[in-house]
Simulated scan of single mutants.
Amino acid sequence: MKLPSPVQWIEVQRKRGHELCLMLDTFDQKPVLKALLNGRAHDRYSSLYSQTPIAELASIGPFLIVLDSGDTQPLTELLNSPERHWGWLVSIAAQDFAALVQHWRERILVGQRPDQGIYRFHDNRVLGRALPFLSPEALPAYMGPAISLCYWQGEHWLSADNPTPGQHPLPEQPQWLQVPLPPEQRARIRETNAHRFLLAHHQVAYLQLAEHRDPFAWLRQQREKAEGWGWHAPRQLELLLASSLSTPEFEMPVQWHPRPYEEPSEHFERVYQDAKLLQGKGAA
Rank of each mutant, 00 (worst) to 15 (best):
K2H: 04
S5D: 11
Q8N: 03
W9C: 00
K15Q: 12
E19D: 11
D25W: 05
K30Y: 10
K30F: 07
P31Q: 11
P31A: 07
L33Y: 04
L37P: 05
G39W: 00
R40D: 00
R40S: 01
A41R: 03
R44L: 12
Y45D: 09
S46L: 09
L48P: 11
T52P: 01
A55D: 15
A55C: 10
L57F: 02
L57C: 03
A58M: 02
S59Q: 12
I60S: 00
F63L: 05
L64Y: 04
V66S: 15
D68K: 15
S69D: 15
T72C: 10
T72V: 14
P74N: 10
T76S: 14
T76G: 13
L79W: 05
N80A: 14
P82I: 06
E83M: 12
R84H: 08
H85W: 09
G87D: 08
L89V: 14
F97P: 08
A98Q: 15
A99Y: 13
A99I: 13
V101S: 08
Q102S: 12
W104V: 05
W104S: 05
E106C: 13
I108P: 03
L109H: 06
G111S: 12
Q112T: 14
R113Y: 15
D115Q: 08
Q116E: 13
G117L: 03
I118K: 03
Y119E: 07
R120E: 06
F121L: 13
F121P: 07
N124I: 04
E137S: 12
A141K: 05
P145K: 04
P145D: 04
A146R: 07
A146L: 04
S148L: 09
L149P: 10
L149R: 08
Y151W: 09
W152M: 07
W152A: 05
W152D: 02
W152N: 03
W157K: 03
W157F: 07
L158T: 07
L158S: 13
A160V: 09
P165Y: 14
G166S: 09
Q167M: 08
H168L: 10
P169H: 10
P174L: 06
Q175M: 08
W176R: 04
V179N: 04
P180L: 00
L181F: 00
P182V: 06
E184M: 12
E184H: 15
R186Q: 11
A187W: 11
R190A: 10
T192P: 01
A194V: 07
L198S: 10
A200Q: 10
A205G: 07
A205P: 08
Y206Q: 10
L207D: 15
L209I: 14
L209P: 15
A210T: 14
H212D: 08
R213G: 02
R213K: 15
L219P: 11
Q222C: 01
R223G: 10
R223K: 03
E224T: 08
E224Q: 12
K225N: 02
K225F: 13
G228T: 05
W229Q: 11
A233K: 11
L237W: 13
L237H: 14
E238I: 01
L239D: 01
L240S: 01
L240K: 01
L241Q: 09
A242V: 06
L245P: 04
S246A: 15
T247C: 03
P248N: 05
E251F: 00
M252W: 02
V254C: 08
P258V: 02
R259I: 13
P260Y: 02
P260I: 06
E266S: 13
H267M: 00
D274R: 14
L277S: 08
L278T: 13
L278Y: 10
G280M: 12
A283I: 12
